[in-house]
C-alpha cells in the first residue's frame, strides 16, 4: 500500500520535476552568462501562467499552442528589462542587479494585479488520463513533461551545434576570450537575458498544464525559491544541469511528501518545503558548485 503510493508519487515527481527543471533553465542561463541572479524569476513564471490562461479563456487556444506566444512575449520582456534596468548595473556591485531583478518582479506582479485583479483563477482543459493502476497521469501533465524535455533537448542542441549557441557558451566561459574572437559580448548578454526570460515565461505555461488553478499575481514566490534549490542542485550555471536538478527535486519533493504523510501529527506539505530548504543548505555547505556537476 505505502509502496504503491510511493512509486505512484515518485513517478508523478519525475514528471513534475521535468517541468520544474524546465522552469529553472532560464534562471541558470541568465546566471551562467551574466552572473546575475534573477530574484524576480517567479514573476516571469506567473506571466506565463496568465498567457496560458488568457489565450485559453479568451481565444480558446490550447495551452501547448500558447508556448510560442509565451516565448515571444518573454523574449520581448527580457529585452526591455535588460536594456532599461540590467545593462547599466552589470559593472556595479552584485546587490545592484539583485535589487533590479527584484524590482522587475514587483513591477510585473503589480501590473498583473491591475490587469487581472489579485483573485486566484484557473482553467479547465480536459484531455483525458492515463491510468496505470497504481497512479493516474492526466495527459496534460504528460504533455507538459514531454514539452519540457523537448525544450531541454532543443536548448542543448542549440548550445552545442549552432554557431550562435556556441558563441553564447564562449561568453559563459570567458568574456575576454569571446571578445578577442570578435563576438559581440554586449549583444550576447542581451540575447541570453532575453532567451532566459523567454524560457521562464514558457515554463509558466507548462506549469499551468500541471496545476491549472491558483493563478494569481503573487504565485511566483514559491517557484523562485524552488528554482534556487534546483539551480544549485544542477550546478547553478548550467541550463541542462538545471533540468536534471529539476528531476531530482521533483523526486525528493514527492517522495518526502509520501513519507512525511506517514508520520502522524506532521503536516506533510509544510514539511516538504522545510525539507527542500534544509537540502539547499546542506548542498551549499558540502558542494557549493552543485551536485550534478562532474568536477
Amino acid at each position: 500500500m505505502i509502496f504503491e503510493q510511493l512509486s505512484g508519487n515518485l513517478l508523478q515527481g519525475v514528471i513534475l520535476g521535468g517541468v520544474y527543471g524546465m522552469a529553472t533553465m532560464g534562471l541558470s542561463l541568465i546566471f551562467g552568462v551574466l552572473k546575475v541572479v534573477n530574484v524576480g524569476h517567479g514573476a516571469f513564471i506567473m506571466v506565463g501562467a496568465y498567457v496560458a490562461l488568457t489565450l485559453f479563456q479568451t481565444f480558446g487556444v490550447a495551452p501547448p499552442l500558447a508556448v510560442p506566444a509565451a516565448m515571444v512575449i518573454g523574449m520581448a520582456l527580457g529585452m526591455v528589462f535588460y536594456y532599461s534596468a540590467i545593462r547599466k548595473l552589470l559593472k556595479g556591485p552584485e546587490l545592484a542587479s539583485l535589487l533590479a531583478t527584484f524590482s522587475c518582479g514587483v513591477i510585473l506582479e503589480e501590473v498583473c494585479k491591475q490587469l487581472f485583479t489579485s483573485e486566484a483563477r484557473g482553467y479547465n482543459w480536459e484531455l483525458g488520463k492515463l491510468d496505470l493502476g497504481f497512479t493516474v497521469l492526466p495527459h496534460a501533465k504528460l504533455l507538459a513533461f514531454g514539452g519540457s524535455a523537448l525544450i531541454g533537448i532543443l536548448l542543448y542542441l542549440w548550445f552545442h551545434k549552432t554557431r550562435a549557441g556556441m558563441a553564447m557558451r564562449c561568453v559563459v566561459e570567458s568574456d575576454e576570450g569571446a571578445r578577442v574572437c570578435g563576438i559581440d559580448v554586449d549583444w550576447e548578454y542581451a540575447l541570453s537575458f532575453s532567451i532566459g526570460i523567454g524560457l521562464t515565461v514558457v515554463s509558466g505555461v507548462l506549469l499551468t498544464m500541471f496545476i491549472p488553478v491558483g493563478i494569481n499575481p503573487y504565485m511566483g514566490g514559491s517557484y523562485t525559491l524552488k528554482a534556487f534549490v534546483i539551480a544549485v542542485l544542477g550546478g547553478l550555471a548550467s541550463p541542462y544541469g538545471a533540468f536534471f536538478g529539476g528531476l531530482v527535486f521533483g523526486l525528493i519533493e514527492n517522495g518526502s511528501y509520501t513519507l512525511f504523510a506517514q508520520i502522524p501529527g506532521l503536516e506533510p506539505f509544510a514539511m516538504t518545503r522545510f525539507f527542500s530548504f534544509a537540502m539547499l543548505l546542506v548542498i551549499l555547505l558540502l558542494r557549493p558548485t552543485g551536485l550534478l556537476k562532474a568536477k
Partner: peptide, 20 residues
C-alpha cells in the same frame, strides 16, 4: 566596439589565456 575592431584585423592573445 571590439567585435568591429576584430573585423578590421585586430586581435589579442589575452593575459591568462582565456581559452574555452
Amino acid at each position: 566596439p571590439s567585435h568591429k575592431r576584430v573585423d578590421l584585423g585586430l586581435t589579442l592573445v589575452p593575459e591568462g589565456k582565456h581559452i574555452f
